[in-house]
Design a protein around this nucleic acid. Structure first.
Length: 473
RNA sequence: GGCGAGUUGGCGGAGUGGUUACGCAGCGGAUUGCAAAUCCGUGUAUAUCGGUUCGAUUCCGAUACUCGCCUCCA
């Protein structure tokens, strides 16, 4: 069986992956808070863990992997949007409008991530559908002394959990010394974090032993992971900005509530995305969503390919240059793999992916397949990485078709006449004339490729300009 | 201030305790009347300083720099 090695944040080492149950490999990845369109950075973990999901399915069997990615639909930004809509005259209760906003955001997310070639996880639980489980978990924590109620809030007692901070390598005392913690009157200790908080009438809330309220940020992942994967599972993933506090808090909640040593065996974190060397932010004006790129005509496969061209644990820079190179490469590969039936997966390809998802290495191997004209292997590798180029071929065809239609018979006749003249000129070694004709056609957006027998093929480019062509008359 | 990740040729980007992938660009060649397209070839770079070692880009330590997190942003 293929050996998969993964870098484990918990140990900071690359370790051989051994499933708890190889008939049911379980992975949880933190999904989006569904308050708005997913930005490009959101796409990185989706694509990275999608490749891991595919690899696990390849190695352990399609039916032996359970992949869970949640939707967090309890969030103040969702509430704000809903409230604004209500004030603007939208019909429905606030709760209905909140649900509506979450629904539409989830639909967008699905559409965008589908376009990136990401397979849907087995389960995509929504936080609002697991409130009971969260309440039960919080109650358990309270009963065991890991949590306490104060002024309608329920807080996790960080000092009670000795291992707190081990994932991210922090100590509670150091963090307090850093003085960046929120001090609140209802906290026993500044590091304690919220499990449950009270809701006002304008905010969504659920009944609980502590009154009407809503869950804190971290508890939903603990509750949903427990429900769908159990108290102890194999892999937990997400962006490295979630390492602290989110994942640290998840571990604390889950291990204390479930009485387990570990929540997940392997913790994986992808590095952040940058744009042209800078952090993507609204203030820098380089903030954009996946949908923005798709609408600009950047194919999802290009986004995916660029993402996979950098190892997931390194910062990845989205640049215009990379976009162009990826488009060129995939364009070539789309053509040569068009009629190919994929071969069985290449061992080396799988071995590379098994080395902590070495996708750049795997792509390098695809280049070598292309160079050696092993197009069946190339096709298989592309398929494995989720780079479906079928739409590319259709796109090319469609584009050609459009140009064909666009170029009228009259224009074709002009081109053919010119080519005829050029053929004769070349035959008579009148290269001044033949070059002149070629320059003229190039200028009009018709590209020539000469054949050894003196004839020429031509194709239109996106610069094709009928007016310039007609100017010959 | 604390924590984490990173620093490889012109650019992008891997692997490796001892002849350093791969892509793009560049250069050279084949081909061509010249181009284009295609094909072939070509690149001793691993931040700095120490240490371990017969030998380090690879292991260890320090320094510098970059990025991120500690502010419900993946």
């Amino acid at each position: 069986m293929t050996t998969i090695k993964l870098h484990n944040t918990k140990t900071r080492k690359r370790e051989v992956f051994t499933p708890i149950d190889d008939k049911n490999v379980r992975m949880y990845v933190c999904g989006p808070t569904v308050y708005d369109r997913a930005h490009l950075g959101n796409a990185r973990p989706v694509i990275v863990f999608d490749v891991l999901n595919r690899l696990l399915r390849h190695v352990y069997g399609d039916g032996h992997v359970t992949y869970v990615r949640n939707f967090t639909d309890v969030d103040d930004r969702i509430n704000e949007t809903a409230l604004k809509r209500q004030q603007a005259g939208a019909v429905g209760s606030l709760e209905e409008l909140i649900r509506e906003r979450s629904d539409e955001t989830i639909d967008w997310y699905h559409a965008d991530m589908d376009a990136l070639g990401a397979l849907r996880p087995n389960h995509e639980p929504r936080a609002t559908e697991y409130i009971d489980q969260m309440v039960a978990m919080i109650a358990q924590l309270e009963a065991d002394g890991f949590a306490y109620e104060k002024e309608g809030h329920v807080l996790f007692r960080v000092r009670k959990y000795a291992d707190y901070g081990t994932l991210s390598g922090r100590s509670v005392d150091d963090m307090i010394a850093g003085a960046r913690v929120e001090v609140a009157p209802y906290k026993e200790d500044p590091m304690d974090f919220v499990l449950w908080k009270p809701s006002t009438d304008e905010l969504p809330g659920w009944d609980s032993p502590w009154g009407r309220g809503r869950p804190g940020w971290h508890i939903e992942c603990s509750a949903m992971a427990y429900e769908l994967l159990g108290a102890h599972f194999d892999i937990h993933g997400g962006g490295n900005d979630l390492m602290f506090p989110h994942h640290e808090n998840e571990i604390a909640q889950s291990c204390c509530a479930n009485g387990t040593e570990a929540m997940a065996n392997v913790w994986m974190h992808n590095e952040m995305l940058q744009v042209e060397g800078k952090k993507m932010s609204k203030s820098l004006g380089n903030f954009f969503t996946v949908r923005d790129l798709l609408e600009q005509g950047v194919p999802g496969e290009v986004i995916r390919f660029v993402m996979l061209s950098t190892h997931y644990r390194k910062p990845m820079d989205w640049t215009e240059k990379k976009r162009e190179e990826a488009e060129k490469t995939l364009g070539k590969w789309a053509l040569v793999t068009a009629e190919e039936i994929p071969s069985p997966m290449d061992d080396e390809f799988i071995r590379l992916l098994g080395e902590d998802l070495n996708t750049p290495g795997a792509i390098a191997l695809l280049h070598s397949f292309a160079r050696q004209k092993e197009f069946k292997k190339l096709r298989a590798g592309l398929d494995f990485l989720g780079l479906d180029l079928a739409s590319w071929r259709a796109f090319f065809d469609e584009k050609d078709l459009q140009y064909d239609k666009y170029i009228s018979m009259d224009h074709r006749s002009i081109i053919n006449t010119l080519l005829g003249e050029r053929f004769l000129a070349k035959k008579n070694r009148d290269f001044v004339k033949s070059d002149h004709i070629r320059d003229f056609l190039t200028e009009a957006g018709i590209k020539l490729n000469d054949n050894p027998d003196g004839t020429s093929d031509w194709e239109s480019t996106s610069d094709f300009d009928p007016a310039k062509l007609e100017a010959i008359k």
